[in-house]
Design a protein around this nucleic acid. Sequence first.
DNA 1: ATGGCACTCCCAGAGTGA
Length: 262
Amino acid sequence: MQIATWNVNSIRSRVEHVVDWLKAHPVDALCLQETKVIDKDFPSSPFRELGYHAVISGQKSYNGVAILSRQPLAEVNAGFEPVVGTELAGDLDEQKRVLSGILDDVRIVNLYVPNGASVGCDKYDYKLRWLYVLRAYLLELQGRSPVNICACGDFNIAPEDRDIHDPVGKDTHIMASPAEREALQAIAALGFADAFRKFVSETGHFSWWDYRTRGFRNNRGWRIDHHWVSAGLYERATSCAIDSTPRGLPKPSDHAPVVFTA
DNA sequence: ATGGCACTCCCAGAGTGA
């Protein structure tokens, strides 16, 4: 089974890229983030023509997640509330960042973790609060069937210094601050492993490059798009690879797709 | 130290991303 994740920075701006990519990489499921479109305007037809079903949870202008899959997903739910309840979810589901469904023996969880803007600001606090609820969400899912979970998406956190092109001084930088990394590690400690690091140990492998600094041309990037998988899935994983090719196309997303195979 | 580019939407320039 192949499960891919790709922050497309507007699905309507990226339909051609995604269609072309799926033709070359007919993965079983593709988790999209930052679709930036309300559900009724999501461009489902080009993907249907490729044989993909779409489940979507979108909003106007910002955020938005979707899962394209060759087979229909079972037990689909959107947001934190259906899993953790209204009290814990609070207002977090107003932003559409969580979508999940079951494919064969795997529960796929598609996540768009908040950016956080800058360390210490309101959005940063929101990000940490969101990660705290995400932990409760995944803990609850672990108690359900199936036991295999693939939590993938744009985490907006570089887990370690080797996931940043130039990590010096980044401990006060968004995506690398100690509190963000600790929140991610608290999630990993539930029993999830970063599938990419089963296969690649060295630095220099990134999934996001800033538009503004010719980051891609110089490979000044960050690895912030991940597959955090449960133990059984980690054991049977045969590959986890970043495909940087689409990042080099005209009018690209600033993120590249990442493909997990198990 | 700052800003840089790309996207969205009452179509102009602000908000957001990371």
